[in-house]
Design a protein around this nucleic acid. Structure first.
Lengths: 379, 379
DNA sequence: ACACCATCCTAAAACGTTTTGGATATGATG
DNA sequence: CATCATATCCAAAACGTTTTAGGATGGTGT
């Protein structure tokens, strides 16, 4: 008889229950939608509603499990309680750690976020902001992602090439970071230092490289051009993992045949790739070559040998980014233009005193052990 | 004079430009909103509009840069073109790799996604689905996340404890995976095998453990209970990284003082932690102890020594999950109940023939080198 | 001349909220 | 008794779309 019964829910999931609407709730209470809206939405006008009525409304709202329709709400308020995160790739450790921090802050404030990984594709970087604005995001966080237009929502950028008026940038203090790195290596007696630069086009790359050269110059150390490699050209390098890029860069360095006793990599991921390449070439870390990374991603304390690195507090930086963004969204404060993060040297096992004879060693045929040489406290 | 001028855009970002609305566009064209809506929204009724008019509409839409308001649209269509991904933690490599795959598929179809990391917090796992439904998600992907209610949207689960009618599960074939693992180790001559089980409460944990025991039994190998540790109790274990958990588990194993020559870890991340613990104890991998992981996360091919592992194609699994979900959303097909993924043994450097004498070695005072013993093709 | 049918378009009612500008009742005030 | 606050509440318009149910126009066949 009834056609209704024939509606076969073949999908097996629970049938979509009819959601209680504001109107229904109001009707059930014998009130007008206006009144109910005032109290549920926490409007200042809720004060003009009798306390007893307010209580009734809340009770009924519980009872009928009323949940305001976010979309209808948006039409008036223009608030979506969501932001966007643009990133080269969600799945690399660096971005993932940042996103973790971002999320934990956003979650506290009831915000959600969309993430888009452009993987270096120019058209994605170009078009995404617009698509995201269509989705009603109230702000954006750019992680290592360029921006060339001015956006109608607040923007916070982490370590990068993001341009535009009013954006606030969160970056490690590359001067201090480079100085920390140079000091550490020089103290260990290294003078022949090789460098794996970041991707050309990445903001940190230039800063860090300049700072490093300056720090070295002050110690009267010259970095031989043959001992400099880089992680590819931005953004193309994003199509491969950082470790792969680091691996390739280290091999390039070795091929140049210019002896070095220490290697400073652009970041931990590339350092890990580089160490792999060194090991493949029969070079021991740190006995033959000391390696220094940047970032201190979680895995760096579990590599064999453990990675010495200049730490950026990624999770905190993510939180800071989210926090700053939310403030910009809430208030009309422009926020700071630049937030410099203090780097920290974390000495683990991949750096050791320079062994005078080791400088020239190339492909060793006997493999020897990368034992810790410096004693260090457990974290 | 004009109050307007006093509105100080202190935030420094571009002033929000007035968006062209459908009504405005229609008016500009001298048409009714209805007509314009038909063609812009791709309604079937667009066919009833003269081709010339359609062209005019598209042209004007370009010209005025019209962008439909997603929220207004949703009110009628109930389509948000977004889904949710629930995950223990965005920032661990396993989840990150999956999410990468998920995103790449979603992006192709114009879908966005929210991710929520519950980090093992029960109230988050409990409440998140509701909050996400409020946000209008059309489906959800559960990664290693429990579910005890039936949801009004399609659900796809990856490797887990997600219950409910109509959900489709994507899991590695743990029987084959365990067999692959056991075969490999036995072929290398190992008989004293230790195991780091997954977190108690994780779906894969049980399956994999049972399958492994069965595979061993067939080869007449007993796994000594003293040689079994686990990665903590789900979901509490999610508050620490997998590598940390693996590190601890391996130390527990060593403390039991029951000799073993091979260790199969629940996943690569914990294997990496375990190798760290072994190295700290002066044990060489693979000469003293062979280690086998599961997953093949990207970093596994860059560890020293490179990790032998049972591969799950994480990115593809993510894509498959997203694809399946979108199909369930689009059609009314329930989709398959279970999709079994073929595991694959990837032999790298952490497994080697069992050295007869090495079994009893405990804390060695001399550190020796983890050189590759098996030759292997580069990937 | 008429009915009839295509073809092309539109008015108005949704969708589920917020917001504006009152309305109503009550009791105090002069 | 008319006036006026005060305390509560509400009707209706708005937000920007989609969708339903036609309306107008012009050509065909009789």
């Amino acid at each position: 008889m009834s056609e209704r019964k024939l509606v076969n829910n073949s999908s097996g999931q629970a049938p979509r229950p009819p959601r209680t609407t504001l109107k229904a709730l109001a009707h059930h209470l014998g009130l007008s939608p206006t009144t109910v809206s005032f109290v549920i939405s926490g409007s200042p006008l809720a004060e003009t509603i009798a306390k007893s009525t307010r209580d009734r409304i809340w009770a009924a709202s519980e009872e009928l499990n009323y949940r305001p329709n976010v979309f209808a709400r948006y039409l008036h308020t223009k608030k979506s309680y969501s932001v966007a995160v643009l990133v080269p790739d969600v799945s690399d450790e660096y971005s993932a750690a940042l996103i973790g921090g971002i999320e934990s802050c956003l979650a506290k404030k009831g915000f959600f976020y969309f993430v888009v990984s452009h993987r270096g594709a120019p058209e994605l970087m170009e078009k995404s902001p617009e698509t995201l604005l269509d989705r009603g995001v109230e702000g954006m966080i750019f992680i290592n992602t360029p921006l060339h237009q001015s956006l109608p929502v607040p923007v916070v950028a982490i370590c990068d090439i993001t341009e535009g008026p009013g954006i606030t940038r969160i970056m490690i203090d590359n001067n201090k970071a480079a100085a920390l790195a140079a000091d550490h290596l020089v103290q260990l007696g290294h003078r022949d230092i090789a460098v794996i630069q970041g991707p050309q086009g990445n903001g940190d790359t230039e800063h860090r490289w300049r700072a490093l050269r300056k720090a070295c110059r002050q110690k009267e150390i010259q970095i031989d051009p043959l001992n400099v490699a880089h992680l590819g050209v931005y953004p193309a390098c994003n199509e491969r993992t950082m470790a792969e890029n680091g691996f390739d860069a280290a091999r390039e360095l070795l091929a140049h045949d210019k002896p070095f006793t220490a290697l400073v990599a652009f970041n931990d991921a590339s350092a890990i790739g580089a160490i792999r390449a060194l090991a493949d070439a029969g070079l021991r870390v740190p006995q033959d070559i000391s390696v220094l990374g940047f970032d201190d991603i979680p895995q760096s304390s579990f590599t064999v040998p453990r990675l010495t690195t200049i730490r950026q507090p990624l999770a905190s930086m993510g939180e800071l980014a989210a926090e700053t963004l939310l403030e910009k969204i809430a208030g009309n404060s422009a926020g700071p233009g630049l937030l410099k993060i203090e780097p920290e040297l974390v000495v683990r096992e991949t750096t050791a005193p320079c062994a005078p004879r080791s400088a020239g060693i190339k492909i060793a045929t006997n493999f020897a052990c990368p034992a810790p040489i410096i004693a260090l406290p457990e974290a």
